[in-house]
Design a protein around this nucleic acid. Sequence first.
DNA 1: AACCCGTGGGC
DNA 2: TGCCCAAGGGT
Length: 355
Amino acid sequence: MITPPAHALLHWYDRHRRTLPWRCTEGETPDPYRVWLSEIMLQQTTVKAVGPYYLRFVEKFPTVQALAAAPRDDVLAAWAGLGYYSRARNLHACAQAVAALGGFPRTVEGLRALPGIGAYTAAAVAAIAFGVPVVPVDGNVERVTARLYNVQDPLPAARKTLAQLASGLNADAPARARPSDFAQALFDLGSSLCSPRQPACGLCPWQGTCAGYAQGMAATLPRKTPKAERPVRHGVHFMVMDAAGHVLLRKRPETGLLAAMTELPGTAWRTEPWAEAEALAQAPTTAQWARAGVVKHVFTHFTLYVVVYAARVERFANTDVAQGFLLPVTQAKTASLPSIMQKCMTAGYDFLHRA
DNA sequence: AACCCGTGGGC
DNA sequence: TGCCCAAGGGT
């Protein structure tokens, strides 16, 4: 087993490292809070999508103490649109735990025990913020490793093997001297040269020791077992606005999909499409409901079609409002809604302003 | 172990 | 358009 030379990767990194909002320049001391925050946001989420959210968060919550002291709903609101909302709830719980501890644990095991921090994030924060010589294994590192060692076993079954192989990548002295840079160099290598589709092996600092390249297999790795088909579900949501321009919203349950997030009132999301009469029986108020449109939204494990019904009323009855809360439509249009509800809101709003 | 949990961009 | 992918974690 040949360990690729860390000095070659680090030399490449010193010339080509990305400038990112959460990344220190050379010589700067990393802020563990910012490292941790960025790592949580970057879970299954692109650098481009995270950028504006990260900047807004550090402005609104400059320290882990500030985040811990903030109301949970403020944190959820700041997260709205970024997806995987359990991250936001765990982020807040983690901030409170860290504030109680007086600071972030400096070891992998200590970090791993905190909410929302798994094996990857614990290693990433330990390496980047505290200089612990560990290799965080994310999708990038799995891909780089699968290619370096020509691992043919498909993911996700090969995950343990890849983690084991990756853990040896920092075995030599140059890597152990710069744990933070070495981890980030692996990310940059994976996101640029060693990319999923068309790796630029001709420019790679590790080409000489890459078994996948030697076998002409690099671009095909890592292999993956085919995913199950994505089922379809159907739901109906209702947008109703009063003469003063208020829209009726409600809060979703504390657990499950889009937990604790805001939504338009609606039906369950089920396999069978809803007949109109059946759906209208669940409308939040009596009104002249009109079919405003259909919204399609793709979640990780199912595709959702939502029929949006819209209506105007003069004013809401107290019993209507008791189901949720009212918000001026001008705020709702730009408010802290999950993306699917943002789409529904737009569909209803556009319809009411056309009709 | 297998499933649940979002979203937007690239090709 | 449809599919793949992204600095994964919890249960």
